[in-house]
C-alpha cells in the first residue's frame, strides 16, 4: 500500500515537474520572441500566444500541486487562466489597432484602409472627437 502511494506521488511529482518546465519554457520563448523578432506585428505573436499558454501550464501545475496535498480540491487558479485566455487576444487587438493608428514600422505592408485615420472611426486629428453611436 505505502509503496503504491509513493509511486503515485512520484508520478504526480513527475507530471508537475514536466508541466512547470513546459510552462516556464513557453513563457521564456514568448519573451524571446518579443526581444528578437523584427517588427512590431511579429513581436505581437510571442506574448499573446506563447506566454499565455506558458502561464496557463504553470497555473494548471499549481492546481495539480495544491489539489494533491490532501487539503481538498483547489481550482481557483483556473480563474486566472481563463481570465488570461480571454484578455490576451483583446489586448493584442487593441495594441495592433494602436500600432496601425501610429503607423509603426512593419515588414509586411499594412492595408491602406486600416491606416487611414478617417476610416478609423473617430479620426485622429480632432482633439475631442465627436461622440458617435458605434
Amino acid at each position: 500500500m505505502i509503496t503504491n502511494l509513493g509511486c503515485g506521488l512520484n508520478m504526480i511529482d513527475f507530471m508537475l515537474a514536466i508541466l512547470i518546465l513546459i510552462g516556464a519554457a513557453f513563457t521564456f520563448v514568448g519573451s524571446l520572441g518579443l526581444a528578437r523578432l523584427e517588427d512590431f506585428y511579429s513581436r505581437l505573436h510571442g506574448p499573446t500566444k506563447a506566454t499565455t499558454l506558458g502561464v496557463g501550464a504553470l497555473l494548471i501545475a499549481s492546481v495539480l500541486y495544491f489539489s494533491t496535498r490532501g487539503e481538498g480540491l483547489s481550482l481557483h487558479e483556473i480563474l486566472v487562466t481563463l481570465f488570461l485566455f480571454i484578455t490576451a487576444p483583446v489586448s493584442a487587438h487593441l495594441l495592433s489597432k494602436a500600432a496601425l493608428h501610429l503607423r509603426v514600422h512593419s515588414v509586411a505592408r499594412p492595408p491602406a484602409e486600416a491606416e487611414d485615420p478617417i476610416a478609423d472611426q473617430r479620426g485622429s486629428s480632432a482633439a475631442h472627437p465627436p461622440e458617435q453611436a458605434s
Binding site: 505573436h45 499573446t48 485566455f85 487576444p89 487587438h93 486600416a114
Partner: peptide, 14 residues
C-alpha cells in the same frame, strides 16, 4: 477575433 488571435500564427489586427 479572439479565436483568431489565439490560434496558428495569426493576430486579429483591425
Amino acid at each position: 477575433a479572439n479565436t483568431v488571435s489565439l490560434t496558428p500564427g495569426t493576430v486579429s489586427a483591425w
